[in-house]
Amino acid sequence: MNKILVFQTAFLGDLILTSPLIKSVKRSFPGFQVHLVVRKGFEGVFEDFWAVDRVISFDKKGFWRFSKQLRNENYSLAVSPHRSHRTSLILFLSGIPRRIGYDRAGFSFLYTDKVKHEFKKGLHEVERLLGLLEPLERDFSLVYDREVEIPLTISTYERTLSKFSLKEGEYAVIAPGSVWPTKAWLPEYYAEVGNYLLKKGLKVVIVGSKSDEVYCSRVFELMGGRGINLCSKTSLKEFFSLIKGAKLLVSNDSSPVHVASAFNTPVVEVYGATVPDFGFFPYGRGKFVELKGLKCRPCGLHGGKKCPEGHFKCMVDLKPEKVIEVVEELLNC
C-alpha cells in the first residue's frame, strides 16, 4: 500500500497550521494513505479528519524504536515541517526513500529534498509550509488546498455550547496565556478589554491550558469575577468549539489565533516579543496589534521567559485602549 508521512511534533498552533499541507498532500495523492506524526497529547486534534488516515503520537522518547516503527510502515515519501535534529535523523533512519524538509532544519543534509525556509514580510506560515511540496511539482500534478481546517462535529459543538450555557455569537473569548511569558500581554490589560466587552453586551469566556491558569485566574479576578473562567476545564474539542462559536477572540501570539482561523472567527492578536513578519498573524478574519518602533523587537523566534532588556516595554507600553480600538472595529464589521 502506498503511504505518505507528514511529521509535525511542534506545538498546537503549528500543528493546526499544517492542515493545509496535509490536505494538499491528500488531494494530490488520493490513492495514498496519509499518516501524521504528532506530539503526544495532540492525537485528538485531527481525529476523524478526512485527510488523515492514521495519527501516530511520539513522546520524543524511544528514538531508535520509533525509527524502526516507521521503517516497518514502508512509506514512499515523508514531508517534515518540523526543523529539529531529532526529526531529521528519525526520518533518515526510517529508510523512507524520499524525504522533504527545510534547509534550516537540524541535520538538513539528511533530507533528499531541501526547501528554503525564510521569513518574509507578508508570508504566512501556511504558505511557507505549502512550499515543502514544491520539489514534487517536477514529477506530479499537485492540488493545493489553502484553508486551515480542524475537524469538529456539529454535535460536539452544540453540546459544548449547551454545557457552558452559551449561545453562538453572544460571547467573546479571551486567551491571556502563553508558554512564553514575553508573549503574554498583561492580565490587567486583558481585564480592561474584558470589561469593555461586557459593556457591549457580550459574555466573556476566558480559556487556556493548565499552564495558563495563573494568567486566566488573574484576569478573572481583575474582572471582578464577571467573566466565565474555563481555563483547563475543557477538552481540546470543547476548546475548539468555544472559539468557533465566539463573536470575537482576543489572544496573544499563540494557538487560539490559529484555531480561530480554522472557523473564520474574528480575532485580535496581541504581539510582544515576536513580530507578524514571522508569519503567524491571523490567517483570515483578524487583525494584529503591536508596539512599533522598539529596536529590541523581536527578541526571539518564540519569545522567552523574561525580557532581555528588563523593561518589557513591548507589552507594558501597549495600552488596552489600542487593542479596544481594534476590537471595536471588528465588532462593527
Rank of each mutant, 00 (worst) to 15 (best):
V143F: 04
R83Y: 07
F92P: 02
G62H: 06
K287G: 00
S254C: 12
H258G: 04
V268Y: 06
V38I: 08
R86Y: 00
H85E: 09
D145H: 14
G201Y: 12
F7N: 03
D53P: 11
S209H: 03
V193P: 00
K306E: 15
I243F: 09
G122A: 11
G13T: 08
K292A: 13
V173I: 12
R71M: 11
S165F: 13
D103E: 13
V214A: 13
A10S: 15
L318S: 07
F63T: 05
G131T: 04
N252W: 10
Y190R: 09
C216H: 02
V205R: 02
S28Y: 11
S254E: 01
K292R: 14
K292M: 08
K23W: 10
C231S: 08
T18C: 14
L166R: 04
L91F: 08
K40F: 04
G131S: 14
T153A: 11
V179F: 10
F164T: 10
S261W: 02
C216D: 02
M223S: 03
S57T: 11
E125Y: 06
I56D: 02
P30G: 07
V173A: 03
P151C: 02
K60T: 00
K237R: 15
V45L: 15
L136M: 03
K60L: 14
G31S: 12
V214K: 15
E213C: 03
S178N: 11
F11R: 11
S261Y: 03
I22A: 05
P30Y: 13
V193S: 01
T234Q: 03
L133Y: 09
S162M: 07
S261F: 01
G279Q: 09
A78I: 03
V38K: 00
K295G: 05
K319M: 10
R128K: 15
R54N: 13
F239S: 07
G279L: 10
F7T: 00
I22G: 07
R99A: 06
G279P: 02
L331F: 11
N2Q: 10
C231D: 02
G101T: 10
G101H: 06
Y144W: 12
V37S: 01
L166F: 07
V219H: 08
G208T: 06
M315D: 00
I206H: 00
D277S: 15
S57I: 03
H258L: 10
K233P: 01
E192N: 10
K306G: 04
G208L: 04
G286V: 01
E188W: 15
F66L: 02
E238G: 10
C307N: 08
S217T: 13
K199F: 03
D253W: 04
Q69F: 15
I56H: 01
S241H: 11
V267L: 05
N252K: 04
L197Y: 06
G122N: 10
Y283C: 02
R285T: 00
P97N: 06
L123Q: 14
N72Y: 08
L230I: 09
S141K: 15
G62L: 05
L198H: 09
S155D: 14
Y144K: 14
D59C: 07
P151H: 08
E238M: 12
A172I: 01
F109V: 12
N195H: 05
A10M: 13
E192S: 12
F288R: 07
P266C: 03
S67T: 12
R39Q: 14
L152C: 01
